[in-house]
Amino acid sequence: MEQDSLMLYQTYGGANISFWLITLLVLISGGIAALSTNIVRAAFSLFFTLFGLAGYFVLLGSDFIAVTQIIVYVGGILVLLIFGVLLTNKQKQPLESPRSWPLFVFATVCLIALTAVMVYCACVFPSPAINQNYVAINTAYTLGRMLSGSYVIIFELAAVFLLLGLIGAAFLVRRAD
């Protein structure tokens, strides 16, 4: 089943190509999402970014989390974002980015630092696509046991927070009558 297939995949070297392809997709679509001046195009390229993240989870062997990423982020949050963008998009001019020199310098410094970190990781760590700590378990089952066993309080608290958010949102958009 799925657990054995990951070892198969990693052994036969396909994992490396997939990793770099997914990285390419994430970087390009993330770049478009962050830098594009057309907000609709930005929203739709965010879709590809989130999909790529789900691909990373698959490479790490967490099938359940990958599918949850798709359901929650792509199917929930991104769709909400797109609804919002499509419904309120009356702009005819592209977005303007703020021009401020301190921000530009700060961004460049961060970019250089991030690149340095990535180069260091690439040199020091082995092939990024192989998950060294991979253990063949049934992820859905194990997650379920943990969430209803050791982490049940946090799970319930998260559920209560979500409920608060829901009620708050419904309260905010109620009609004034």
Binding site: E2, D63, F64, V67, I71, G75, L78, V79, T139, A140
Partner: peptide
Amino acid sequence: MAVAIYYILAFEA
């Protein structure tokens, strides 16, 4: 897949 049904539901998105 071990998460087959979940996977099919997800691609509705």
